[in-house]
Write a protein that binds this DNA or RNA. Sequence first.
RNA 1: GGCCCCGUAGUGUAGCGGCCUAACACGCCACCCUGUCACGGUGGAGACCGUCGGUUCGAAUCCGAUCGGGGUCGCCA
Length: 599
Amino acid sequence: MRTHRGGELRAEHAGQPVTLVGWVHRRRDHGGLAFVDLRDASGIVQVVFHPDSAPEAAAVVAEVRSEYVVRIVGEVALRRPGTENAEMPTGAIEVIAQRAEVLNASETPPFPVNQETSVDEMMRLRYRYLDLRRERMAQNLRLRHRIVKYMRDYFDARDFIEVETPVLNLATPEGARDYLVPSRVHPGHFYALPQSPQQWKQLLMVAGVERYFQVVKCYRDEDLRADRQPEFTQLDVEMSFVDEDDVLDVMEDLYARLAGESAPQFAIPSGRFPRLTYQDAMERFGSDKPDLRYGLEIRDLTPLVTDTEFVVFRSVITEGGRIRGFAVSGGAETPRRGIDALTELAKETGAQGLVTVAFGGEGTLDGLAIEDVRSTVTRFFSAEQFAAFGGACEAKRGDLLLIAAGPDALTSKVLDVLRRRVAEDRDLADPNVLAFAFVTEFPMFEFSETDSKWNAVHHLFTSPFEEDMALMTEDPAAVRSRAYDLICNGWEIGGGSIRMHRREALMRVLARLGIEEQEAIEKFGHMLEAFTYGAPPHGGFACGLDRTVALLAGERDIREVIAFPKTKSASDVMTGAPQPVRQAQLVEAHITVVAPPSV
RNA sequence: GGCCCCGUAGUGUAGCGGCCUAACACGCCACCCUGUCACGGUGGAGACCGUCGGUUCGAAUCCGAUCGGGGUCGCCA
């Protein structure tokens, strides 16, 4: 049908006869002479139609509109001097059309395909096949392909094998809400779609695979976000006979190489990915996935205010809380409106209020006078005390301190939100940098107020630190797990853990989670049994592929790197899914709909 | 589930109680134009302002509900 791909034609093709196919990207009709920018998957090339030498072709072009599919027979020629287009890869040449044929007409597209204007999200999803024709999405799809291919090649070269695991699974009591699939053969019984192939990959370790990976779809029926879709893709990896360092080394090596290979425009701070403990991350950044492209590190000011008159601080300290804050370099100039906005944000996040301290002037805080301090709490502290606050936060004159008081969980949350807002307002995050890091030693359990019981922070096969096992009964919150996350620029890219591979350990953890032996055997009997047949020590990780691609594509929203994503309400506006099904289908599946959508 | 934002020609926006029988840009249609590349020029068609209800002499503009989209908290082992 074609001899060349238009976007690949260059000066060395000049003089060659070619046959091209593609879409009419743009048509410029000069009322005689006409140009068509012809687009195919390889790019765009200019085709020229001369009415004198090729009148039939020119007549065809007069009828052609945007997105028509055409076939052009012609000859490649160097462009006339002065008409070359340096912006286009094919800009040195053009194709002189001899014959033209419309392979298919096109309706006027509902939004421009040939330019990157912003278009309503729903409109793009409804006509996704047109959206994917556009430059940005076409590039994202190709980047995604290259990333997946890189991953597969990477693991293949290191003796990992990709093993497919079932999509129809046993529902588990822990974790996210399952998507359920009814069984026709077993009335009233249901499968669950995998939230991740967690158990399967551990069973593969018991099976002696030793090195497994899989690029796999996972499903979670939870509320969505810019970085969460109901179905998403994971890079899932598991290895036998490893400890934390072995696994982290693989993740680090993979991501460093992958980023360098597929997104070389990003700078990665040199050296190894920093490793910080969960405790450290929360203390310094208030978050378990801090954006390390900027500082704004949180400091503890509690020791500086132990005997304060300020009631808010005093009562917080009495109740076991702390006073924490960070310095915003050059923030003293922040107008009243800006301070109010930050205070409001702090309150929305749960804080009682926000203490701000602005240091006037320039230079160090030496000899700071109270007149140089602009603060919500000026009357409670001396100039020396303010200088001490500033000193603790490594501030200088011209800086602004943001200080929150309360239990650590609250101040962390508030200061994390403030850090991110300040960084965004002040453009502190360099968009050309990938700040990868590992966060390790996550807590094993966390108390759920809603369920009033202890839940697993990571997942229930995660191994606790041996030396913390003793705390399991009296102080579950203090038990550290051998879990780790890979983070980058404020995103959680992936995570994993060293697993429990002995039955007794698993039983103890299940008991702590309030899962009775009977239920444990019912739900996890296969795992417990497998572990009695020589299960090797093992661990692994899973990374969000969609987030990885979005990160390397410079996109904020994973929908931009998924061919056919769903909306926030988990529906597909193109096909209309989900929809009610015919009664006969329900009968076959033994399903009675109790609360039908009100008509 | 809570809170917040958005919903005006095909697309993106403006208008935010009467000057709106709704404006601008792109797109679309027609005509003109033989070197453009976001081609140019002239003219034209096209929305009753998501839906329903209310307030008002009068609503795109105010209020309520509802639907849809998005953000955020909860949630996401």
